[in-house]
């Protein structure tokens, strides 16, 4: 017993170090395979408020540009609205709408790491919940991962763990959208079968298989494509429409049918 105590006293620093290292490695490795911990993220009260204080100062610098973007989008949406052939008032009934939109402001944005997260200033109080899609005026941005009362962290598409269903525009060929952590303006689309005819410059949009994003949200254009090692699928490099380094206003999408879809899929899986 004496010896054990002596041993502990002698190596107490080493043991303390090993203990703390194990704690931090535990958190880290857990996050490699699973979701971010619900505690260690920048959506909590303290970090959220510090970030929003800092962003309330810096957000003034890009206002002109942001206004231009919004006018541009309004123009596009108005054009769409005026050119609808049959105006059906039923479609405008808010009870019939499948998707609800909340707008938010980015208060912290990362794109230089392997697993990038974005913090926005909307949270549980604005009915933002995990697994909702987030987009900007130009295209897809990511998926909400954690929420607190006033803030939320978004898993950016520039994240190794991100995997989103996408398709080539105007076809039904699906693939999954991933990121190889190399460039912040290029993402990869994999698992597109070889028989698909591809051209550089084709547009890629979100697919219908996901219950997170509505169909046909723009992602990017094809920059380069190669067959993968098995020679049966393409690996495609996409140039993003979004400038990931400069994001201010985002829209969070809530799919009202999502719960029903999830329950149904779960029930089907359980039966097997």
């Amino acid at each position: 017993m004496q010896q054990i105590i002596n041993f502990i006293i002698r190596y107490k620093h080493f043991l303390l170090y090993i203990f703390l290292l194990m704690v931090s490695l535990g958190f880290t490795i857990q996050s490699h395979s699973y979701h971010q911990s619900s505690f260690f993220n920048s959506s909590n009260w303290l970090t959220g408020n510090i970030y929003s204080a800092s962003s309330s100062v810096t957000s003034y610098f890009g206002l002109t540009e942001e206004n231009k973007k919004l006018v541009e989008e309004n123009k596009r949406l108005r054009k769409l609205l005026f050119n609808i052939k049959e105006k059906d008032t039923l479609e405008l009934d808010s009870l019939q709408q499948q998707y609800l939109i909340t707008s938010g402001k980015v208060i912290n944005n990362n794109y230089a790491k392997v697993r990038n997260y974005i913090t926005i200033n909307k949270g549980r109080n604005d009915s933002v919940a995990p697994d909702m899609g987030v987009i900007t005026t130009h295209g897809i941005l990511g998926i909400v991962e954690n929420v607190s009362n006033g803030f939320a962290t978004v898993q950016s598409i520039l994240n190794e763990k991100s995997k989103i269903n996408a398709k080539i525009k105007n076809t039904n060929h699906f693939g999954s959208l991933k990121w190889d952590a190399e460039r912040y303006d290029v993402v990869q689309l994999t698992d597109v079968p070889r028989l698909v005819k591809l051209t550089v410059g084709d547009t890629v949009v979100t697919g219908a298989k996901s219950s997170i994003f509505p169909e046909n949200i723009p992602i990017g254009t094809i920059q380069k494509f190669d067959l993968d090692t098995s020679n049966s699928y393409y690996t495609i490099d996409l140039k993003l429409f979004n400038d990931m380094t400069n994001i201010k206003i985002v829209y969070v999408i809530q799919n009202k049918d999502k719960e029903e879809i999830m329950n149904l899929e779960q029930a089907t899986e359980d039966e097997q």
């Binding site: 931090s24 880290t28 260690f40 993220n41 920048s42 510090i50």
Partner: peptide
């Protein structure tokens, strides 16, 4: 060592990097 761990963890909180900063900071502290 304890203080370095907390320092790393504080940075981790802000940068959504789990406990990467904590692990590396506690290593150099040791």
């Amino acid at each position: 060592i304890g203080l370095s761990f907390i320092l790393g963890l504080a940075i981790d909180f802000f940068s959504d990097s789990m406990a990467l900063h904590a692990a590396s900071t506690v290593t150099i502290a040791y």
